[in-house]
Computed example of a mutant assay.
Amino acid sequence: MRINKDTTIVGNNVVLIPYKKEHVDKYHEWMKSTELQMLTGSEPLSLEEEHEMQKSWSMDENKCTFIILDKNKYVETRNEIVSMIGDTNLFFANCDDRLCAEAEIMIAESWARGRKCGWEAMLLMLNYGINYLGVKQFIVKISYANEISLHMFQKMGFEEVSRSEVFQEVTLSKIVDDNWIRWLQNNLGEFQIKST
Rank of each mutant, 00 (worst) to 15 (best):
M1Q: 01
T8A: 07
T8D: 10
T8Y: 12
I9D: 10
V10E: 12
N12Y: 07
V15S: 10
I17N: 06
P18Q: 00
P18F: 01
Y19P: 04
Y19M: 14
K20D: 06
E29C: 06
W30I: 07
M31S: 09
L36M: 13
L39E: 09
S42D: 09
E43W: 11
S46P: 11
E52K: 11
M53I: 09
S58G: 02
F66A: 06
F66I: 01
F66C: 06
N72S: 15
N72W: 07
V75M: 13
E76L: 13
E80P: 11
V82L: 13
S83G: 11
M84W: 09
M84Y: 11
D87F: 08
F91E: 04
A93I: 02
A93L: 02
C95L: 02
C95F: 09
R98S: 01
L99Y: 07
L99F: 11
C100S: 03
A101K: 03
A101R: 03
A101Q: 04
E104A: 01
M106R: 08
M106S: 05
M106T: 09
I107C: 01
A108Q: 03
S110M: 08
R113T: 05
G114P: 06
R115F: 00
C117E: 02
W119A: 06
W119D: 12
A121Q: 07
L123R: 02
L126M: 06
N127G: 04
Y128S: 09
G129C: 05
G129S: 05
Y132A: 12
Y132H: 11
L133T: 01
V135H: 01
Q137M: 06
I139G: 00
V140K: 05
K141F: 02
S143I: 04
Y144K: 14
A145E: 14
N146T: 02
I148H: 05
S149P: 07
M152H: 10
Q154I: 02
M156P: 05
E159A: 04
E165G: 09
F167D: 13
F167A: 14
F167L: 15
Q168I: 03
E169A: 08
E169P: 07
T171D: 03
L172I: 09
R182A: 03
W183A: 02
L184S: 05
N186L: 02
N187Y: 01
L188V: 00
Q192M: 15
K194V: 14
S195V: 12
